[in-house]
Simulated assay, not measured.
Amino acid sequence: MDENFRTVRDAFGAAARWFAETVHELDRPPAPWEATALGEWSRRDLVGHTSRALLTVEQYLRPGPSDSDRRSVDYYRAVRGGRADPDEVAERGRQAGRDLGADLPESVDTVVRRVTAVVAGRTADARVETPVGEWRLEAYLPTRVVELVVHTGDLRTAGGLDGQAPETAVRQALVVLGGLVADAPSDDAPHLLTALTGRSALDAGYTVL
């Protein structure tokens, strides 16, 4: 197996398991799943949204290989270009949370086991058909690691939980985010350069996503 794909796959598995562990940690009395978590999302909504980082892998995989040369950063570029409706994104998260049912930890465990097993049986060049184009699995999967790491962190913050993401998952997420920094718009590049070298500060809320 390609060593890079093995690293990506291991990072995805580690991030998925951390997500499941976090949901179990949050499921303690009084387990306020309807409490606010992030913006307009409740904890349940955010669990639902985060679960889509797994479910979309399963949903978008197709038979056969792909010869796509698109990179992980190209996925984010395509999503930005598609101007996804924030209200639709929010509602998909809420619906995914409802679809997980009453027992969130058990449902998330089931999703994690099923999707990681699916990924384990596919090759780096497996074809992934997304609403914004085709990717090889080895290029799409890192974007799911980013989503899992970032939003599981959001869940832990909302629940007042300590603990860091698995290093392999963090490293993979940083590879993607580093690529996005290098791919930043020309107007942002000079400021990013000075900020990353400690010579200025980024504006509150700035994101490369």
Rank of each mutant, 00 (worst) to 15 (best):
E40A: 14
L137N: 06
D45A: 04
R122F: 10
D45E: 06
V146D: 08
G101R: 02
L38T: 11
E3L: 09
W33G: 00
A96I: 02
A35T: 01
V89A: 10
R62C: 13
R98E: 09
D69H: 01
D85K: 02
E91V: 04
H151Q: 13
A139V: 07
W135F: 05
V8P: 00
P30Q: 10
R28E: 04
T7H: 08
R70Y: 08
L54W: 05
N4R: 13
D85G: 07
S42M: 03
G133N: 02
W18S: 14
E3G: 05
V119G: 05
P86V: 00
D27N: 15
A16N: 10
S66M: 09
R43I: 12
V47Y: 06
W33R: 11
E138D: 15
V108S: 05
V79H: 14
L54H: 09
T130R: 08
D103K: 01
S72A: 12
A16G: 07
H49C: 11
L137Q: 04
V145C: 10
R6L: 15
F12D: 13
D45F: 01
R6M: 13
E106L: 15
E134L: 03
R17P: 09
E91D: 05
V119Y: 04
V115K: 04
D125H: 13
E40H: 14
G82S: 12
L61H: 11
D87P: 01
A102Y: 07
E91K: 01
R6N: 11
V108F: 08
T123M: 15
D87K: 07
T22S: 13
P30A: 05
D103N: 15
A37G: 06
R80D: 14
V149D: 07
D67H: 14
V128N: 14
Q59A: 14
D99F: 07
V115H: 05
D103T: 12
F5E: 11
L26Q: 02
A20S: 08
V111M: 13
E138L: 05
T7E: 10
Y60S: 12
R113K: 07
R136W: 02
S68D: 10
P142A: 01
N4D: 05
D85F: 09
G82F: 09
E58P: 06
V112Y: 09
E134D: 07
E88F: 04
A102G: 08
H24T: 10
S72E: 12
L137S: 05
R136N: 06
V112E: 13
S68Q: 14
A126F: 01
T130V: 01
S68N: 08
L104M: 00
R144L: 08
A96H: 04
A117P: 00
Y75C: 10
R77C: 06
